[in-house]
Design a protein around this nucleic acid. Sequence first.
DNA 1: ATCCTACGATGGACTTTGTCTAAGTCAAGT
DNA 2: ACTTGACTTAGACAAAGTCCATCGTAGGAT
Lengths: 139, 139
Amino acid sequence: MSDLLERLRGRGWRMTAQRRVVAEVLDGDHVHLTADEVHARAVERLPEISRATVYNTLGEMVTLGEVLEVATDGRAKRYDPNAHRPHQHLVCARCGAIRDVHPAGDPLADLPVTERFGFTVSDVEVTYRGICPSCATTA
Amino acid sequence: MSDLLERLRGRGWRMTAQRRVVAEVLDGDHVHLTADEVHARAVERLPEISRATVYNTLGEMVTLGEVLEVATDGRAKRYDPNAHRPHQHLVCARCGAIRDVHPAGDPLADLPVTERFGFTVSDVEVTYRGICPSCATTA
DNA sequence: ATCCTACGATGGACTTTGTCTAAGTCAAGT
DNA sequence: ACTTGACTTAGACAAAGTCCATCGTAGGAT
């Protein structure tokens, strides 16, 4: 069931009720939750879980490469459990809705060596912005 | 001299000492400053300028399309005076240094209609990440 | 099964980044 | 120079996140 949980367990993670709940919340719906949203949902199952623990756990999962951090607006970071399939994000400029998208081509290859200034470029993050269908109809 | 200042004046902006200083600071070095860095530099020239004014002024310049907001990390937004030449950003994952870069091709065209989910896509933001030459040498 | 202990969790203080408001100030048109 | 509405100010407030001292417990050792 919880694929994410299995992967974490396989890495020798010490399993606690708190970590299990955070992993389950993240892996549940495939939406992109903020840390506070994760905390809110975790509290429903484990009322005494603290914010610090949620932040710590999310941070560890990011370090382990099992979860991605996405900063689509200047506000709270969002956490994306879909770390093992490369993808980009499409964000509604009005309501903030986020969809995973898969552009054609490799954006990394589009950056010529002359435009790399000696950097060792290892990653590229692409954020498309627009208006989603439901925001478009409600004027 | 201050191209940015000229453009703002041409739009009927009420010119004040504070706005002039903010525009000059931004247009001076072509680095990507945070709001607080802008404030720190502005204070050197106009000691009584307040943080709120810097935030207001930057926000207005963004609304007018004369300055771009870039959120390369989850931290403070940075302000980019180079709004009239389309470009993307290359960020050092270690020290946070930012360079403007010009990828080949149009990233917007790389998103097939089938991957747009009914969104009206109007903009794309690309952030390349890597290690800059000076961080690479200092282990 | 029980004990130990290092790792994890807790909550509250603290920091950073940004917004808001009420009151004072000033640029620019008349 | 006067007037007025736009601009600025200081400080309170808010949101997002980090830090720390202390307490609790998972899981190996016995």
